[in-house]
Every structure is written in C-alpha cells, then in structure tokens.
Nucleic acid binder design. Structure first.
Lengths: 242, 242
DNA sequence: CGGTCGATTGACACCTTTCAATACGGGTGG
DNA sequence: CCACCCGTATTGAAAGGTGTCAATCGACCG
C-alpha cells in the first residue's frame, strides 16, 4: 500500500532536489510507514515528545501556537513535501502544534533512527539543516509581512506565496488550486481579525486581484498581485526533500 | 590575542551545553580567527554569499530585512553565543542582514570547512541543526507576539525575553543589564511605530514595570512584567554553542 | 556654535478591532 | 422529509488602538 521512496511522487516535482539512488535506498529504510488522516486531525501537539517525524505527501495542514488567553498564531501552512517534527527531534519537544486541514497522507519516520541518520549520512543531515534554515527564512518573511504590511498587502502576499508554492508543486489547474483553509486560519496567520480579513478578501476579489472562495484559490495575474503585495513574484527556492 | 576555545568565556555560562575535550579541539581547528568591530558595523548583507560564519563572543547586534518601500523588519537581537551566517552556509546566500549595535568580538569560522564539519563530527552537525531549530522557535515566538499581542504586551514581552537571556549570560548586575539598541530597533522588531513605542515605554516605566533608558534595561520584578506580557518568566532553554 | 541623532510630546486621522446580526450549507434526530 | 443546530462566511456600525505629522529637547561632535 505504502509508496516506495523510489516512486515518491514528490520527486517528480521540480521544487525538490533529486535524491541519488543511494539516498533513496536509505530513505526507504528510514521510512517506517504511512499515516492517513482526515481533515481536522491533530498531528503533533505543543509540548509533546513525539516518537515520530513526518513528511507530508498529500493534503495540507498548519502549524500553530496557542497563547494563554486563547488566541492562536498560525506559524505557517503545510504543503506536500514539508518535513514535520524536527523540533521534537532536536530540542526534545515541539514548540508548536500541527494539524491537518484536509485529508492528508504522510510518510512516517522513526525518531530513534534520527541520530543514526546524522552519523551515517552527513549529506542528509546537511539537508535537514537546510530545511530548518528554510523554515527560518519563511518565518522571517511572515514576520516581515505581519509587522510591516497593511492588511491588504499582507493578505495579497500570503495568497500569492501559497499560489506560487502550489504552482511549483503542480497543484494549479488552469488558474486555480485547492486551498483547504478557513478565513480564520489566514486571519490567525497574519494577526488580523476574522471580520477584517473577510472584508479585505472581498475587496481583493472585487478588484479581480485574487479570488479565494469555496476552498479554491484563483489568481489571474500573479504580477499584478505581487505589485499589490509589495513584493516580487518569485518561484519558491528549490529545496531538499526528506 | 584570540581566545582559545579551551578558554572560551561563554563555556562558563550555564546557558550553553558543555563541549567535550574532543569537541573543543575540533572547534579550535574550525575557528580561523576573531573579528572586532565597532557599533554600527555591518556583518552580513542580505543576498550576500559570505565565506565566513561567526559566533558572537562579546557585544550585541541585530538581524533585519529591508522591504522595497524602505521599511525594516528586525528579526531578532543578537546576544553573545549566537551563531551567525548559517543561512548562507546551507542555502547559498543570506536572507537577511546582520549588523553590530555595540562594539562586538566574534569568532570567525571558515565556510569552506563547513561541509567537513558535517562529515567529520555528526554530533556537532546535530548541534547546528539544533541551533537552527532554536532560531525557528524564537522567530515563532516573535511572530506570535507581533501578531497577537497589544503594543504594551509585545514590548513587555520583548524586554522580558532579553532580560532573561541577559540574566542567563551573566550580564545582569543588580537588576540592570546593558541593552545597546535604539527605540527604533525595538519598534522595527515589533512592527510598531517609533512614536507609539516611545509612549508605551514611558507608560511601562511610569508603572515601574520595566525601565529601559540610557542603554540600560532594569527590571525589578520579572514576575510582574511577565504577567503584563501575558507569559511565564522562564529561563531560556540550554543550547549548544558552536 | 551649527548640525546631527535619538528621545520625547501633542494633536489628529484612520486602519483595525469588537460587537451584533444575518445568511448559507451540511449534518443529525425526530 | 423536515426542523434544528452548528460551523463558516458575510455585513453594518461604532469604539479604540496605533500611525502619521510636526515640533521640541538634550547630548554629542567637528
């Protein structure tokens, strides 16, 4: 049932660096199974010390933190190819929670093998560090958006970024891709209220810049959307896949 | 002139995990020199492909990104023990800039040895990944502050965090520590305007919660400040030192 | 002594939040 | 099959936190 790493569908995407045959064989050993969950399922909890790590194969999810007062900060949105659970593996426990927002399939890795990983395959250890650096980079971008951009710009930026990522993954059909999140998720990601997020989305839709409704994200002109967001429309950097 | 790793002053702080003798010897080889700079000196530039990496020994600095419109987002504040330049080492180029805000002394490492590092010392490679995960964790915390907290809470949180870090590093004398930043730096870190930051700082000072003036940060009661910030007053996690 | 930089203060505009109510679709139990 | 409930999306109005503009002040420096 489980996909063999040699047939990994993600490897066919240009977004990811290709594995050597040797790496593929090693990943195959490292992979202990697959996890299939429904929308809404929690994958990792803040403070937990999970014995497992994952790579998203299909579907989407999100990482978030909860504050004492009940507020939620969404750290980022999880797309296929994202590696989940690194924090617990190196720091001992997760600093944030992870949950699926659509049905998901994930490769499961055994954390007890993690150290072995570092010792036996320095190239792969390097790649894991690379991934950590990429996450840091994206968090920095998000922080910049939340801190310095207006609501309209921030939302335009966020939707454009997800669209670009979706495009690189081949999720875009025509000019649309599935985007299985609630408006509340986006609001919590950008530090905006749900009401204002809704009104801003409506405005962007009316201006024909971007249309996100019924779980479908459509962008007619990425250049124009990028101008609105105050950024360039750049494809996401190629990255390693674990 | 340069400090030998065996006598590294940071190793005496409880904040950092201790090196084994073997690790110390390896670090000594990895370290190619020391860099001394004045306040205001740029250390790394966004987009640059620096051949060097650093560990801050003395002094402080900050990481930041510039937007097209000239706005600046400060990503975090650099304290002694922080590792600088990982992004360029793994991703090819820096995604943010780094500059000193006080006189600084830094250990200099040669990037061409970086790969060697991963291959020869998996434990140290693991530590570098650990550091990357910690940065991600702190960025997540900052994002949560900027996104979900009021100006007063955010500033209280930021000052408390720096005070705790300073305390762990032994920088606190009595109830004060040096904090060589401008109000503009804090404003840019939290996505607030300079004016509002100033007024909020005054309010916190009047309420005797925290006093930051003349480059000196004083906190009488960390518990009370933590309550204001809406968090716990926790010491920073112990971390590896590169 | 003029010039620059950072800190400070006051007034005012406005973007965003909060409160409240309605609409719409899907699921469930009677 | 329909009434009811719940989660999500949508809309209007009002309050308020934060940004912008502008001016002053003190410290430092050539």
């Amino acid at each position: 049932m489980a996909v063999h790493c040699a047939n990994c569908p993600l490897q066919r995407s240009d977004l990811f660096l290709n594995h050597t045959d040797d790496e593929t064989r090693f990943m195959e050993r490292f992979k202990v199974g697959e996890l299939v969950v429904n929308a809404g399922a929690p994958l990792l909890m803040e403070g937990s010390n999970s014995p497992q790590m994952f790579t998203a194969l299909h579907g989407m999810g999100l990482r978030y933190k909860l504050l004492k007062n009940g507020e939620r900060q969404v750290l980022n949105f999880i797309f296929p190819g994202d590696f989940i659970g690194l924090q617990a593996a190196v720091m001992g426990e997760m600093q944030h929670s992870v949950e699926a927002t659509s049905a998901m399939t994930l490769c499961v890795f055994d954390r007890s093998e993690f150290w072995n990983f570092f010792r036996a395959h320095p190239e792969r250890a390097f790649d894991i560090t690379w991934l950590a650096a990429i996450e840091e980079h994206f968090l920095g971008e998000t922080l910049t958006s939340v801190g310095q951009r207006s609501a309209t710009q921030a939302i335009a930026w966020a939707l454009l970024r997800m669209f670009s990522r979706g495009d690189a993954l081949g999720l875009v059909r025509g000019r649309s891709m599935p985007l299985p999140y609630r408006q509340q998720d986006l609001a919590d990601a950008l530090g905006l209220s749900l009401v204002h997020t809704n009104k801003t989305l409506t405005k962007l839709r009316d201006r024909q810049l971007v249309n996100w409704s019924d779980g479908l994200l459509s962008v007619a002109d990425t250049e124009k959307l990028a101008r609105e967001a105050g950024t360039e429309d750049e494809p996401p950097p190629r990255r390693p896949l674990i």
